[in-house]
Simulated assay, not measured.
Amino acid sequence: MSDSKTPETIRYKRAYEKAEKSDGYRVLVDRIWPRGVRKETLALDAWRKDLAPSNKLRRWFGHDPQRWAGFYQKYFRELKEKQQAVDELLEVCGDRPLTLVYAAKDDEHNNAVALKMFLEAYQASNQ
């Protein structure tokens, strides 16, 4: 990763929650568009399907909390293969907050939570 600015904070937010100015750079990190949500309502800066878990991994996980540890470990392996996409995401949002938008009902066991964990560890290892 270059010495360019990176997000001051990384957070996640359900697609069904109201977009706020304090969200900063808002990026949808699901492979599938959230059911029943209009594009204008989401107020996204980007939709990064390329940073979502593979279809195979997503189906395997099935939002089963008992598979959480296995899911995020496998997802981290997928993300390590996408270093350029990860760098692009961090660089394009600059020093604004980064909000990872997701549709899952489970607020603790989803790809946005895992992606936040990955990005924070990635940033820490590249400082």
Score class of each variant (00 low, 15 high):
64 D>P: 04
118 F>N: 02
39 K>T: 00
33 W>P: 12
8 E>N: 15
2 S>M: 06
28 L>N: 03
92 V>D: 14
50 D>A: 01
8 E>G: 13
59 R>V: 13
35 R>D: 13
29 V>E: 08
41 T>L: 09
94 G>A: 11
100 L>V: 04
110 N>P: 12
103 A>W: 06
87 D>M: 05
76 F>Q: 14
3 D>F: 11
109 H>I: 09
25 Y>Q: 06
112 A>E: 05
105 K>A: 02
116 K>W: 14
123 Q>Y: 06
42 L>Q: 13
119 L>E: 09
110 N>R: 01
124 A>M: 08
89 L>V: 03
73 Q>Y: 04
44 L>N: 10
14 R>A: 04
57 L>H: 06
84 Q>F: 06
65 P>W: 03
93 C>K: 00
88 E>A: 04
50 D>S: 02
84 Q>W: 06
18 K>N: 14
15 A>F: 10
120 E>N: 12
102 Y>F: 14
49 K>H: 05
5 K>Q: 10
98 L>T: 12
38 R>V: 02
14 R>I: 01
126 N>Q: 14
104 A>Y: 11
67 R>Q: 15
80 K>A: 13
118 F>A: 04
55 N>V: 07
109 H>A: 07
97 P>L: 07
125 S>P: 09
94 G>V: 11
35 R>Y: 14
122 Y>F: 15
107 D>P: 14
32 I>Y: 10
94 G>I: 13
47 W>P: 04
91 E>D: 10
69 A>T: 11
125 S>Y: 06
28 L>Q: 02
105 K>L: 04
34 P>T: 05
69 A>D: 15
115 L>S: 08
117 M>Y: 12
106 D>Y: 02
15 A>P: 13
45 D>M: 09
36 G>R: 01
100 L>C: 08
86 V>Y: 13
110 N>V: 00
67 R>H: 12
21 K>S: 13
23 D>Y: 07
